[in-house]
Design a binder for these strands. Structure first.
Lengths: 336, 336
DNA sequence: ATTTTTTTCGGAAACGTTTCCGAATTTGCC
DNA sequence: GGCAAATTCGGAAACGTTTCCGAAAAAAAT
């Protein structure tokens, strides 16, 4: 006699199980009075509808898969929190997987999730994603997918994006208006859309002020990348006056190497990061960075996906672009 | 005609569905020949057993819940990877939730997971856990739970732990044998067992060398905690010669403040962290720290839980203690 | 008062498996 | 060749819901 089922509740009240079911999913016809009566005794008996039976009956898993490249900083974890918040509210579970920056692991993750019959997917691509064809295939098979932040143009699906162009431009402007001239951009992983947009923002900021566009150095998103690039700059004696980095991690890596080599931040080199990480407030100097609305990203991605799931088939892929904020800290302010 | 079910396979071969089922779960009596035949045509038809139907029929969700306080550094994410690896291999899903350092959120997470009928739980407590009674209740209700790393003595359950005592002792010894005298310990959150063990290691290392035990300062696990404590030390002019920190985050926070105030690491203050984070290699100076076997922790926790689930009831709570490594880097070596 | 409409509910099929029980077939044994 | 045992399989119940369909009851309309 472990679990009490819908039958127990029905028997107790001399009603049918369909009535009890209706009481719990109040979309069907049932008298308010009996509904309350059922819910009351259900509570007394400690009855909780079995979600698995519901899934089988409804032919939906009420489970959605979320795939992210990593959890190394707090960006993705916060997005997860936002997504889970709206999913749970809609009675859905989230199956979260990390692809560890490998497109092969990413693909395997998608496959296990699909085998587990998820109703849909929320995905942020690894940098080196070579799964475009695979994803377009899934979309053609009517598997609902929403991508966020890290995505590529080639995939036709709903997306929740950050306005990388605008905020890259703002970040660069912030350096320009302070009079910095020799500004270099540490470029992120090339095939991602956000990399192109940040680069475009960097470029257009220069154009707006009629400056020759600063140097662009391929870098990447990891600390090691920033360290490597900074070391190369030093070796080649090509250290710029200011840096707009691909993200906070690479910025922190670069700062570390510069400081080790006797450069002072921001006196010798000013630097701004991107995608505010938990590090920004705790580096020396504190790091100027663009803050993304992490929770909001997760929430809208989840909402978009649920919408898409509920409109079975006839929906148009949407792209929602969210806004952020430039947090100005010590690493970029000019010392006079 | 979307999904092909077990019936389609059965009809195609003129066998019963029970035979097909047996072919897929080869524990029952079935002729090798027919089994192969079934698996072959099942593959041809693209049949995949519906996991939800299996769950309902077997009265198991094949889902386990994992609750961690956060994902801010790479410790917990790596543990997740290890756990998911063995869970997937056993056909189980993982529902991962963050409790954001709040015991209320933690409790709510447990509740939603239990409502989702997880077969068991893997939990690492928030620092301020006040849910001891609640957990002991769950355990009495025969819900399998395995705790890892962050746990408390009051809970009677299987645990996967790190040998905090031993490695705290090693870390402290590493400072002592280099001749540092005035060593302070930044203590973690008090009610966790690991905090007590690390403190004991710190103390016993001193005793072993017949030194008076260094000062112990309540600190915490976050960067802010390390920053705050370092600032207090400076304000009170109680800056020690060496520090054994509760973890890497607090160490990094402390280093940041010390450096900002003109102290040199390790020349003025030597420091070692704990629970190697992704930061350790990238700070200036690089941070000496104790590395934990993250993947292994996840794997053994998952294995322990699955074992407990399969032995329904009659099992004895085990505590498995794992080993680590001291990674000596620049922050602690004595400059002569 | 009768008919029509609406509301409320019960019966039963369906979702896709697993697994018990027993029957049919094969094998082993004397 | 006959009987017991072992192997292999089919039938059907079970898991706990949702939901369609139709019937009964209540309300509204005539």
């Amino acid at each position: 006699m472990k679990h009490i089922t819908i039958k127990d509740v029905a028997k107790k009240l001399n009603v049918s199980i369909s009535t009890v079911s209706r009481a719990f999913n109040n979309k069907y016809d049932i008298k308010e009075e009996t509904k309350e009566k059922i819910l009351k005794t259900a509570k007394e008996l400690g009855y909780k509808p079995n979600p698995i039976a519901k899934k089988l009956s409804q032919q939906r898993s009420f489970t959605i898969g979320i795939i992210v490249p990593e959890f190394s900083n707090n960006f993705f974890p916060e997005v997860m929190l936002g997504a889970q918040e709206v999913l749970l509210k809609e009675g859905c579970q989230a199956l979260i997987m990390q692809s560890n920056h490998s497109w092969e692991v990413e693909k395997k993750n998608v496959e296990t999730l699909v085998n587990n019959m998820v109703d849909g997917l929320i995905i942020s691509l690894t940098s080196e994603s070579k799964n475009n064809a695979y994803y377009n295939d899934l979309i053609k098979q009517n598997i609902p997918i929403v991508f966020f932040n890290r995505t590529v143009d080639q995939i036709k699906a709903s997306k929740v994006l950050f306005d990388d162009y605008k905020w890259a431009m703002f970040a660069t402007e912030h350096l320009i208006v302070q009079g910095y001239k020799n500004i270099t951009h540490l470029e992120g992983d090339k095939n991602l859309t956000l990399t192109k947009n940040r680069l475009r923002g960097f470029t257009d900021a220069h154009k707006k002020y009629k400056l020759t566009v600063g140097k662009v150095v391929p870098c990447g998103f990891k600390m090691e990348d920033g360290e490597r690039v900074a070391q190369e700059m030093i070796d080649k004696s090509e250290v710029p006056r200011a840096i707009f980095a691909a993200n906070d991690s690479s910025a922190v890596g670069a700062i570390s190497v510069f400081k080790k080599n006797g450069y002072s931040i921001p006196k010798d080199i000013a630097i701004v990061g991107f995608t505010e990480s938990n590090l920004a407030k705790h580096t020396t100097p504190t790091l100027t960075s663009v803050e993304q609305p992490t929770n909001d990203i997760g929430q809208t991605a989840a909402k978009l996906l649920l919408e898409q799931i509920n409109t079975k088939g006839l929906f148009v892929p949407q792209t929602i672009v969210l806004n952020g904020r430039l947090n100005i800290r010590d690493s970029s302010v000019k010392i006079i």
